[in-house]
């Protein structure tokens, strides 16, 4: 018995990585926008905000890695090469796994891209 079944019969898993990216992006944008608009009333410093967004970034990256691992497993850990174009359920699953893995990779990079400003920008605006 597995916690997450090996074969997930849905199209939705394909979008896991990008959805995590979108949530992370929204969190960063909304948190910074609200903080900067309400900076005078904020009970914590901008650095504290950056640190918590860093924490969220780590969570997002871990979530994407988890999705990547699951899709890697669905892809049979790379046991077969693309193009996965045979008219069988097996190849359809391999394709889903591989495509999801690729998207997880892109989402991972995109999350890092979006979190870079947190490293370098120390104030809302100067």
């Amino acid at each position: 018995m597995r916690l997450i079944p090996r074969e997930v019969e849905t199209l939705w898993t394909l979008f896991t990585g990008p959805v995590v990216w979108a949530l992370h992006f929204l969190a960063c944008y909304a948190a910074a926008a609200i903080y900067c608009a309400k900076a005078s009333e904020a009970p914590f410093s901008f650095d504290a905000l950056r640190l918590s967004l860093f924490a969220i970034t780590v969570v997002a990256l871990v979530a994407i890695l988890a999705a990547a691992w699951l899709s890697w497993r669905q892809w049979g850990f790379g046991s077969g090469d693309p193009p996965h174009d045979a008219p069988t359920r097996h190849d359809r699953l391999l394709f889903q796994g591989f495509a999801t893995l690729l998207l997880s990779g892109l989402s991972f990079i995109a999350v890092i891209f979006v979190s870079v400003p947190l490293l370098f920008i120390e104030v809302c605006a100067r």
Binding site: A32, P117, C124
Partner: peptide, 21 residues
């Protein structure tokens, strides 16, 4: 439009990322 620079930077980063796909 005078948005906080941190906001601009998020969108700038995402705009560069879209070049990959």
């Amino acid at each position: 439009t005078g948005l906080p620079q941190i906001s601009l930077a998020f969108f700038s980063a995402a705009s560069e990322a879209v070049a990959i796909p």
